[in-house]
Design a protein around this nucleic acid. Structure first.
Length: 668
RNA sequence: GCCAUCGUAGCUCAGCAGGUAGAGUGGUUGAUUCGUAAUCAACAGGUCGCGAGUUCAAAUCUCGCCGAUGGCUCCA
């Protein structure tokens, strides 16, 4: 990526006059005091400006943005009835929403041709400042633009409009100086959306595209895209024979075939190990509960449309668990606890069922039944810090071990103190002194004891929990971003994101503080002065869900999982029938050593067998014939198609070591 | 739930101006006994997602349903 260059500018001078002649085709905008300007604008003050090159991060964004406008320009020329709404830019792509007749990707060539045409004309992109009323007039035929103007421009004030040829756009800018700057672009896909993202409003057509400074970058982008497609976990899952879906009889429910069950079980076992080390005790809870528990937990009222609910012939109403916490709470409630017993920490590979709407499902990433590495810690308020630290210590090491990545980011979601009514808060009644909890936005705002509405909010619990999460992050020196207003209504939380091999961010782990459930279930422990005290629940998941995590791992590793997770660790092929027995004995020896091995004594050539087994991504393919059988050795082929000879015992120990160390790469 | 596209053999896909299905691969059997990405041959495999309609005739056209994919919304 290009770096931007610094220049001095005087007040009132046009930015474009500062651009060196040799750079005219490369510079798209200027930045002064953190604000971006079009090159055609004049500087409001004297200062140092940064010239934004088309290849820089900001430049790319401007390019994508301008490409979106180029698309809209082409669309209105080709489809005069089309009403452009709004555009947006992502990492490498842009989209533009239109209210227009349905089109398909078959129309792309024509649209792209029109875009090219406009680009070739190299129309100047001009900025015009107009008063609000004038702007509304300019866009009188487009209610979307008018809405946008009304939303963004105060009455009596002014804003900018951009003009390229006959096309005008209400926009803040900046843009590239002329349409000719957008010369390498491609339309990618089409989808639909609703105006303002509101399902009740009219449907819009969203067209996605991309643009780059040069052809090479576009080509690379398309290759990366294709690679990501090839790595789709559904495709890899089929090639490796990991799982299947029975769309007719159990839509949205993943079924693990033996190979997939291996991966799942290895991950579960690893989590069990980690839980044991950090004091999270394994429990097990049932899958079906009478609906009273979901009514008590509050899930019923909020999520009943998204739950699997059923009534038996005798009238009993049940629901499949959409969450594991009530089950863990039920276990917690079997006993009475002293403050000395706390924390009580339960964990379970807990399968939950959520009736995701038909369009919301997707492979393993969004199934209707999935298993969470769920944990619920029942803790004293003063234990939040320690428990959070302990989780935050373990989480990065887990992902380092499994995925080999250090690229982890942390989000701290806290309450929006301007709007305490959105959260479950402690209140003290000013007239009777009663203390209680209440979520003002969804409950009647009055004292449950005397009915007074003179209530005093008490932020202590929230402040304390938030401070503990913050301190936990700080004490480990972890960088994090704080998001006010993003907390759940029942408590603050920390989310952990991992970047995969394709550069995508995934939210995996979560640590949530919950003040709500303990109240719903009237949980308590006995403190040192013999009083009942409400514990706080810490919800935690590290992988998130096994299904989603497996999908992420498959795409991250392109199916070539670390050996300990690999379903077929060794695949033995004899050179001919004459060596079937030797091949069998190798296979047997590997299996006896706990290595997942298979032997292929079917009729066929080695080449063919290798060809057919490769998509299954066995870690090591072992070919044996005369040479090996006479020297008790194996010829081993790794996933990079390199081969190497090993004595049998040596190979076994190499493999066992690789498994034990959970190595990311192969032994050779 | 909404919009778009799609649903043909275990898998990948062809057939769709309407005339009741075809390839490759996998499977089985036989021949071959083979040194690291497809040995040869024969055979078996499908009520063309489900249901209705139009028609003498539907995989093909129409409608409804069920599913899948990409988005939107949602994601405790």
């Amino acid at each position: 990526m290009d770096s931007n260059q610094l220049f001095k500018i005087k007040k009132g001078k046009a930015f474009q006059d500062v651009v060196p002649a040799s750079q005219k085709n490369n510079i798209v905008a200027a930045q002064l005091n953190g604000r971006l300007y079009d090159l055609s604008e004049t500087s409001p003050e004297e200062g140092n400006i940064e010239l934004i090159s088309i290849g820089s991060r900001e430049g790319e964004k401007i390019l994508l943005h301008s490409a979106a406008h180029l698309l809209a320009n082409a669309i209105v020329e080709l489809y005069p009835d089309a009403l452009p709404n709004t555009s947006n830019e992502g990492e490498d792509t842009f989209y533009y929403d239109f209210n227009m007749q349905p089109i398909s990707i078959e129309d792309f060539p024509v649209i792209e041709k029109k875009m090219e045409e406009i680009s070739h004309k190299n129309l100047k992109i001009e900025k015009k400042i107009l008063p609000k009323l004038k702007l509304l007039e300019e866009f009188s035929g487009n209610k979307y633009k008018q809405d946008k103007i009304n939303e963004n421009v105060k009455d009596g004030s002014e804003s900018s409009m951009y003009i390229q040829g006959n096309y005008k756009e209400f926009c803040r800018g900046p843009h590239v100086p002329s349409t000719g700057f957008v010369k390498v672009f491609k339309l990618l896909s089409i989808s639909s959306t609703n105006y303002g993202g509101d399902v009740n409003k009219e449907r819009m057509i969203r067209i996605y595209g991309t643009a780059f400074p040069d052809r090479k970058m576009l080509r690379e982008f398309l290759q990366r895209r294709e690679e990501a497609m090839k790595r789709d976990h559904r495709k890899i899952g089929q090639e490796m024979d990991l799982f299947t879906f029975d769309n007719e009889r159990a839509p949205g429910m993943p079924f693990y075939a033996p190979n997939g069950a291996v991966i799942r079980n290895e991950l579960i076992n690893y989590m069990k190990e980690l839980n044991a080390k950090s004091g999270w005790e394994e429990v097990w809870t049932a899958h079906a509960f009478k609906d009273i528990i979901w009514k008590q937990s509050g899930h019923y009222y909020k999520y009943k449309d998204d739950m699997f609910l059923f009534t038996l012939p005798n009238g009993d109403s049940y629901g499949l668990k959409p969450m594991n916490c009530p089950g863990h709470i039920a276990i917690f409630q079997r006993n009475i606890y002293s403050y000395r017993d706390m924390p009580i920490k339960y964990s379970e590979a807990g399968t939950v069922y959520r009736y995701e709407k038909s369009g919301e499902m997707g492979g393993l990433t969004r199934p209707r039944g999935f298993t969470i590495d769920d944990g619920h810690g029942f803790v004293r308020e003063d234990q939040i810090f320690d428990e959070t630290v302990s989780l935050l210590k373990i989480i990065p090491s887990i992902f380092k071990t499994i995925m080999g990545t250090d690229e982890i980011t942390y989000d701290l979601s806290v309450m929006d103190k301007e709007h305490p009514e959105n959260y479950l808060m402690s209140y003290k009644c000013s007239s009777c002194g009663e203390k209680f909890m209440l979520r003002a936005a969804s409950q009647e705002f009055k004292c449950p004891n005397c009915g007074s509405t003179d209530l005093e909010a008490d932020f202590t619990m929230w402040d304390n929990a938030t401070e503990n999460l913050r301190n936990a992050l700080d004490s480990l020196g972890l960088k994090y971003t704080e998001y006010p207003g993003e907390a759940a209504f029942y408590g603050p939380k920390i989310d952990v994101h991992i970047k995969d091999a394709l550069g995508r961010q995934w939210q995996l782990s979560t640590i949530q503080i919950d003040f709500f459930m303990p109240g719903n279930f009237d949980l308590y422990y006995i403190d040192s002065s013999d009083k009942k005290v409400r514990p706080v629940i810490i919800h935690r998941a590290i992988y998130g869900s096994y299904e989603r995590f497996i999908a992420i791992l498959l795409e991250h590793f392109n199916g070539k999982l670390p050996l300990w997770l690999t379903p077929i660790q060794a695949y033995v092929i004899p050179v001919s029938e004459n060596y079937n027995n030797y091949a069998r004995s190798i296979n047997q020896k590997l299996i006896e050593n706990g290595i997942r091995s298979k032997v292929d004594i079917s009729d066929g050539t080695i080449s063919k067998k290798i060809k057919l087994i490769r998509p299954m991504r066995p870690a090591y393919i072992i070919v044996v014939g005369e040479k090996e059988s006479s020297s008790n050795s194996v010829s081993v082929r790794n996933r990079n198609d390199k081969t190497r000879e090993y004595g049998l015992d040596e190979f076994v120990s190499v493999v066992l070591n690789e498994i034990k160390n959970k190595d990311i790469g192969q032994a050779f």
